[in-house]
């Protein structure tokens, strides 16, 4: 009995071991490319928000999220010619289809500059519309879901179906993403209130 069990265990371990080696091999081959893609996405997103920045500084430690479910991953003080022009905050929080990661830019006068969706796992055609550049919450003005945050004051309420337009049939995703922007904004506000580190 025990001997048979041992044999089964060994066979299973053998299969798992081989699968492990195979995965490690594929992972090590692709690791660099995946990291490069993530870095490029971040650079592009930073450029999209602050087109004319020439320097950025990581200031993650100086920010904290008041919302327990939302975590601030990284924050960059964006500078131009040595002056602080704004703050870019990368934050993640739970959404309908798993974790969502947003990069939000805030200017020193406490306004949202722009919000970019970095990672969102959601239903294609519904929640995934949040990241679709051709999906407009305001069709005549061609404003996308993240686009509607641009120019908003950080003192606004950030309430879906209040001052934030929801994505059709995706209220949960809309709410989660809005909460991430709001938490990032609150953290940015606090950072600006401290005067930032010049």
């Amino acid at each position: 009995m025990n001997k048979a069990m041992l044999k089964l265990g060994l066979v299973l371990a053998l299969f798992a071991g081989v699968a492990c080696v195979g995965l490690a091999f594929v992972y090590s081959l692709t690791e660099e490319r995946i990291a490069a893609h993530a870095q490029k996405d971040l650079d592009n997103a930073l450029k999209e928000i602050f087109p004319d920045y020439d320097d950025s500084e990581l200031v993650t430690e100086e920010l904290s999220s008041a919302d327990g479910q939302i975590k601030i991953d990284a924050a960059y003080a964006m500078k131009k010619g040595g002056n602080l022009v704004g703050l870019a905050v990368r934050a993640k929080g739970p959404s309908y289809g798993g974790e969502a990661i947003l990069l939000s830019g805030f200017s020193a006068d406490k306004r949202v500059v722009r919000v970019v969706v970095l990672d969102l796992k959601d239903t294609p055609g519904l929640g995934a519309n949040a990241a679709d550049p051709a999906y407009y919450v305001d069709k005549p003005k061609k404003i996308t879901f993240p686009g509607q945050f641009a120019g908003k004051s950080l003192d606004d309420a950030f309430e879906v179906k209040g001052d934030v337009v929801a994505i059709t049939a995706s209220t949960i995703t809309s709410g989660s993403l809005t909460a991430i922007v709001k938490a990032s904004g609150a953290a940015a506000s606090a950072y600006f209130a401290k005067g930032g580190r010049k």
Binding site: L12, A16, G22, L23, Y27, T30, D41, L120, K121, A128
Partner: peptide, 28 residues
């Protein structure tokens, strides 16, 4: 399950590395 999961994870990793847009669209 071990065999299937190993191949699926490989597809996931390879798509992330070589077809990042498709990988984003396929998501979950």
């Amino acid at each position: 399950i071990v065999v299937i999961a190993a191949f699926t994870t490989m597809v996931d990793i390879i798509m992330k590395a070589y077809f990042p847009d498709l990988s984003k669209a396929m998501g979950v």
